Computed example of a mutant assay.
Amino acid sequence: MTKFRSEITGVGSYVPPKVFTNFDLEKMMETTDEWIQQRTGIVQRHWVDENTSTSDLALQACLNALKNANMETKDIDMIIFATLSPDHDFPGTGCFLQAKLGIPEITVLDIRQQCTGFLYGISIADKFILSGSHKNILVVGAEVHSKGLDKTPNGRNVGVLFGDGAGAVVVSRRELVNEKTDSRIINTHLYADGNFAKELWIPAPGNALGSERISHQMLEEGMHYPQMNGKTVFVHATKRMAECLRHSCSEAGVTLDEVDVFLFHQANMRINSKVAEMLGIPESKVFNTIQHYGNTTAATIPLGMDDAMKAGVLKKGMLVASAAFGAGFTWASAVWRQ
């Protein structure tokens, strides 16, 4: 009986052309380039113009991933879209993306796992592929944060962190010949703990706020802007990313030393450096992009994967380990051979 595997056959990304440096933010938020770099590692980020939506960014990333996979849109039989910044409350942004790609009637799934959305999406795609129901799945993470940030001094602690962008991969079914050398998704592990949901969240609009989803008072209080307990997030992120990464490698039967490239979620350079320190990983093996893009949430890992391939850091056949942590709290890890 033929055994199958899930392989990442194409990678693509896209960021809007407009760059906002830390010096640009100094004029808005009463912050400094030095303060931002010391605390986050971010130097610049890309923000969309007023007419660009999340699905617009996703479209370009998906087209680039399809080109990299040497495929056409007609080859795709499922879209998994991870985002916390949808085009509209409903329907899901995956449907808008599907229409722009011109591939009606295929399966479309939107997921809301924030910074871990891409790894959740990879895990879901892997399961669908291995079940035999689908052959080529687009997994895309895309965010437009800039339209939802408080760009005044009141919002500087969070507003400096986020950028806009998209990353996508094609996950395809292939025959498994050699478990040791075949390019394939080896494992994924997904976790969540809702007890910490309000440590990193946007309170409004919502249906748990009384008689109205949104009110003038909520807007005046800034409840529609992201809120974060930074210290709590840092402590849990470093602990959980290290734990799940170690577990994924152990289950895959590989040591951390055998991993060629580590692709971490790009929330804060200090978090990634601490995780590397906790696990004894040389920082030279950790590919970071936060300095260029800021935190693009569900897009950071595929965006980084694409950049790493273009830079010649990530090559076919390499062993990759990835981990992410974000709102929910949610966290995840994965090991694959590129």
Rank of each mutant, 00 (worst) to 15 (best):
K3W: 08
S6L: 08
E7C: 05
T9D: 02
T9K: 03
V15L: 13
P16E: 04
P16I: 14
P16C: 13
K18V: 15
V19K: 06
L25P: 00
E26Y: 12
E26Q: 15
M28L: 15
M28P: 00
E30R: 06
I36Y: 03
Q37T: 15
Q37S: 12
Q38G: 01
T40M: 13
V43S: 12
V43A: 12
V43K: 13
W47T: 05
W47G: 01
D49H: 07
S53N: 01
S53C: 09
T54R: 01
A61R: 01
K67V: 11
A69I: 12
N70A: 15
N70S: 15
N70R: 12
K74C: 10
F81R: 10
T83K: 06
L84K: 02
L84G: 04
L84H: 06
H88W: 11
D89P: 00
G92C: 09
F96Y: 10
F96S: 07
I103G: 01
E105F: 11
I111E: 09
R112K: 14
Q114G: 07
C115T: 10
G117E: 05
L119V: 15
G121Q: 10
I122L: 15
A125Q: 05
D126S: 12
D126T: 14
F128V: 11
S131W: 07
G132T: 14
G132C: 12
H134P: 00
L138R: 00
V139M: 04
H145L: 14
S146E: 00
G148C: 12
K151R: 04
T152C: 14
T152F: 13
G155R: 09
N157T: 11
N157W: 01
F162Y: 15
G165S: 06
A166S: 05
R173S: 13
T181S: 15
D182L: 07
S183Y: 02
R184A: 07
Y191N: 13
G194D: 02
L200C: 10
G206W: 02
G210R: 08
G210E: 08
I214H: 00
S215E: 01
L219S: 03
M223F: 03
Y225R: 01
Q227E: 07
N229D: 13
V235F: 02
H236D: 04
R240K: 14
R240W: 04
M241S: 02
A242G: 14
S248I: 14
E251S: 07
V254Q: 05
E258H: 06
D260L: 10
A267D: 06
I271R: 04
V275R: 07
A276N: 05
E277A: 07
G280T: 13
E283A: 07
E283V: 14
N288F: 04
Q291N: 13
T297M: 06
A298R: 07
A298D: 09
G304Q: 03
D307M: 15
M309S: 03
G312S: 04
G317C: 05
G317F: 04
A323V: 04
F325M: 03
G326F: 05
F329D: 00
W331F: 03
A332R: 10
A332K: 10
S333I: 11
S333N: 05
V335F: 03
